[in-house]
Design a protein around this nucleic acid. Sequence first.
DNA 1: GCGACGATTGAACATGCGTTTAATATTAAA
DNA 2: TTTAATATTAAACGCATGTTCAATCGTCGC
Lengths: 222, 222
Amino acid sequence: MRLILNMRSTKKVSTTSPNSSPETAARIKQAAIGEFAENGFTKTTIRAIASAADVSPGLVIHHFGSKEALRTACDDYVFTAITEAKEANAQYSTMAIQLMFEDPQMRTNVDYLVKSLLDPSDHGQRFFEHYIDVVENFVTQGIAGYTFRQSTDPRGQAAMIASFALAPMVLSERLRTSLGTTDIKDTMTRLAPHLLDLYLNGILDSIPDAEVGTDSNGDDQS
Amino acid sequence: MRLILNMRSTKKVSTTSPNSSPETAARIKQAAIGEFAENGFTKTTIRAIASAADVSPGLVIHHFGSKEALRTACDDYVFTAITEAKEANAQYSTMAIQLMFEDPQMRTNVDYLVKSLLDPSDHGQRFFEHYIDVVENFVTQGIAGYTFRQSTDPRGQAAMIASFALAPMVLSERLRTSLGTTDIKDTMTRLAPHLLDLYLNGILDSIPDAEVGTDSNGDDQS
DNA sequence: GCGACGATTGAACATGCGTTTAATATTAAA
DNA sequence: TTTAATATTAAACGCATGTTCAATCGTCGC
């Protein structure tokens, strides 16, 4: 007659999976993605992740080995999740971006990738390269009925477009505060007409007399 | 007969400024700006700043009170330095941007502001607002002979342009690696023609039949 | 000269971090 | 039922961090 007292955490006890790791590991990974997406890799602590996943800090290490290894696992997961979602919505192209701001999980994933992009590690670079590839494809193949004017430097052109497409997400918090929008979806709605107008028609409507590069700047050319 | 042994740091001993604080405080501040610009606020340690300024960690606190206060001091300094430099080169407008990548000190300042922009603190927001103001002025007043097509939402339009202008700096490391350029100046040279072309002519040269939202996507329109 | 004061330092303190460890609980296999 | 293996935890370890402290050094007004 053994009296079993389980006084651990009074929550997840009857989940019918007492000794199975993958379920808990997945929960830890999701918690980590959420924390990384919100606070970045450096500022996020293992203790915060453990707390969000309702486990002990030691268990996080037990399942993933180290914080860096956990990050790699999250990277792979998010990268796969996003590319799969993108392919699934490939035919909608422009709509796919919209969907990324609708689905909360996808928004977290995007936030995660943005944070990864800004952190000087190898992980984000892979995503950036991939993203430029996607854009370059769009430029050569067209997207959603739009076609692009080709360039003699398609890689540079694609890099520019990719950077611009990422800019509102990277600066989303600053834009939100500055424009008084409620969230990034609202921000994008506000910016959308300007984006479309720029991409369709440009924004400059006159060229100065002096060309760029021939800087014979008489500084009094009023 | 007192024997004075000064075995501190065998370097700055005869700099003819034994007991003056402002000189040392300025050096610490410059070191801090450099470290913050390179590694961001969180990852930069007081010890690293002290080492770069060739002083003890305690002296950094002695002069500025705390790491956060030191950051505020750096913020004010960089913000003033950039705005002054911008006004000084106001007539050159486009050239001013070029100068920011030529002058190493200015490049450090720009790096600092970018890091400040990405850190979720109040400091960077002030700079962002100011930058949008500058852009909005450019749009209404023109710049370097260029004139802009006006919008019914000038603030949103300026926010978009500001975000785009900042994007290459925010993503400079990613772009440098991806394009194989040597530094941000080289990167900008590579991107410049694409930027000018986009701003002058747009980049899309055909509008799809179906308008956005009426996604009747016959996916076989080769 | 001298005494007060600021500059400056090395050492220590308190805290939070990632990680390790020893122990317990739980499950699956023999 | 026993045994081995895994999941899980609380506690502690080692280290880096921001900061404090007591002491020394140099300068300047008296």
